[in-house]
Computed example of a mutant assay.
Amino acid sequence: MPLTFTLDPAMTPVLRDGVLDLWSDVSNAGGSVGFVPPVTREEIRPELVKHLAAMSEGRTRLLAGHDEDGQVAATAFLTFNTHRLMRHWVWLYTVMVHPRHQGKGYGRDLLAAAADAARGLEGIEAIRLTCRGGHGLERFYSSCGYKEVGRVPGAIRVAPGDERDDVIMLLPLV
C-alpha cells in the first residue's frame, strides 16, 4: 500500500516523536542522515529541534509520509535559501524512508512528492541535495532525475580513517 504524503502537517507531539523515531531507526540501520550508528533519540533530538525552529520561522517545510498504520514512514525537509541570488532553488534535507519500508519504491515516491511540493512553491526552479558517497545514493538519486553537479572528496568523516565524498545533486524542475 502506498504512503500518504502531507506537506506541512500539524506538528503534534505524535508527529514529532514519529520523526525522531524514524531518524534514529534509519541512522541505526546505517542510513546516511547525519549520524553514524549507534545513535540515540536524545543525540538526534537537537538536530530535529533545529529543523522545527526553521519550520516555525518559515524557512523549512516538512514533507511527511505515513504508512497504512498511520506511522511516520518517510520524511524530507525542503529548506529555502536566504541568499537573494539563490532563492530560485531549495535544499532537500533529511530524506528518509523507514528500513521496514525500503525496497517498496517509497524512496522514489518520496522524491516525486518532494518535487511536486517544490513545484508548488512560488519561484522555485530546482532542488539541491547532498549525499554521502560510498552508499550508492548517487545512483539512486540519478535514477530519480537528479544530476551530480559537484563532489568534495573526503569531506565527510564517519570515523577516523573513513572519509566519504560529499556529493552534490541537482534536480531541475522547469
Rank of each mutant, 00 (worst) to 15 (best):
D116Y: 01
E125W: 06
S142A: 14
A117N: 15
A117T: 14
F140I: 09
A126H: 03
R132L: 14
A126T: 10
Y146L: 04
C131G: 02
Y146S: 12
L129G: 08
Y146T: 05
G136M: 10
R132N: 15
E125V: 08
F140E: 11
L137S: 09
G133I: 04
H135F: 14
C144M: 10
H135E: 03
L121A: 05
C131N: 09
G134Y: 09
R132I: 12
I124Q: 01
A118P: 04
F140H: 06
V149Y: 01
F140L: 15
H135G: 08
T130K: 04
K147E: 04
E138D: 15
C131T: 15
R119P: 13
G123I: 02
R132E: 13
K147W: 01
L129V: 13
I124S: 01
C131R: 00
D116C: 09
L129K: 07
E148L: 01
A126D: 12
A117I: 14
C131W: 02
Y146G: 08
V149R: 02
L129Q: 00
E125L: 11
Y146H: 02
I127E: 01
G134H: 03
E138Y: 01
K147M: 03
E138N: 05
L121W: 07
H135M: 01
S143I: 07
G133M: 01
H135I: 10
R132G: 06
K147F: 00
E125G: 06
V149W: 04
C131Q: 05
G145I: 01
R119F: 07
S142M: 07
I124R: 06
L137M: 02
E138C: 00
E138P: 08
R139A: 08
V149S: 05
S143Q: 04
G120D: 11
C144Q: 15
G145Y: 00
G136T: 12
L129C: 13
R128M: 11
R132V: 15
Y141D: 00
G123M: 03
H135Q: 13
D116M: 10
D116H: 09
R128N: 11
L137H: 03
G120T: 07
I127D: 04
R128P: 05
S142P: 05
C131L: 09
R119N: 09
G136L: 13
L121R: 12
A118E: 07
R139P: 04
G133A: 01
E125F: 03
K147Q: 06
R119G: 14
Y141R: 02
G123K: 14
Y146R: 06
H135R: 11
Y141T: 05
S142D: 10
S143N: 07
R119C: 12
